[in-house]
């Protein structure tokens, strides 16, 4: 593999790690809110979060490009804050990836919170635990299998994305050119050996991820 390919691998891992961290921070409160709220907004918000499941990644990428571009409201904001514009930067990739993978993180965490139910939180309340304390000492630990699943899915899904990245990031080596884009470029240039090396690596990686996922689910079954 060429140095450029290794660069793409490294960038992909970095992007997936940062995206997963952001996703857990953003997705957990969203999942908690959807699981606990009695507001009529519950279904609309859940549907909105699930949008990336059905939309073609190019649609997401296109709107993000417009939104974050120099003439979009997001672009106006980042420029006002002296951050420049985000498309074709690593930060732009992270934002795109977070939105694209959000349902894959929110859904398992939401399911886990639902499975925990109201009772353990009520018990904790009668044992003098405040609402925040109940969340951190009861809800989160009991939702651990869901959080693990979300972490693995969020990471893997970000590694596997293509359309959003291409639309919003382009293919700047070392900056926005991730694995899937590198493979595409190799194939276009008829460099099949290089494409094989990266693609086979992806297949093995995807298999290992799913294997880990199924093992997590088995390990935690007794908790459900």
């Amino acid at each position: 593999m060429s140095e450029a390919d290794w660069l793409a691998v490294w960038l992909t891992i970095k992007l997936a790690a940062v995206t997963t961290a952001v996703l857990l921070l953003v997705g957990t409160p969203i999942a908690w809110w959807i699981a606990r709220t009695r507001s009529w907004l519950k279904q609309p918000v859940a549907a909105f979060v699930a949008l990336p499941l059905v939309l073609p990644p190019t649609v997401l990428g296109f709107y993000l490009l417009l939104f974050l571009g120099p003439n979009g409201p997001g672009g106006w904001l980042t420029q006002t804050l002296a951050l420049g514009t985000l498309p074709f930067t690593f930060a732009g990739l992270v934002i795109g990836s977070v939105i694209y993978s959000l349902p894959f993180v929110v859904q398992p965490i939401y399911n886990a919170f639902e499975a925990v139910g109201e009772r353990p939180l009520e018990v904790a309340a009668t044992l003098r635990a405040s609402p925040w304390n109940r969340f951190f000492t009861v809800a989160l630990p009991l939702a651990r299998p869901g959080l693990l699943t979300a972490t693995v899915l969020g990471f893997a899904h970000t590694v596997g994305e293509f359309g959003v990245v291409l639309m919003i990031g382009g293919a700047i080596p070392g900056k926005t050119k991730v694995l899937s884009v590198a493979i595409y470029d190799h194939v276009e240039a008829l460099e099949y050996v290089h494409a094989h090396a990266l693609s086979a690596g992806m297949v093995v990686f995807a298999f290992l991820v799913l294997l880990v996922l199924f093992m997590i689910n088995r390990r935690w079954e007794p908790l459900r």
Partner: peptide, 11 residues
């Protein structure tokens, strides 16, 4: 409070 089912913290 002692609930009908013991509701121990499983974790």
């Amino acid at each position: 409070y002692v609930f009908q089912e013991a509701s121990l913290f499983a974790h």
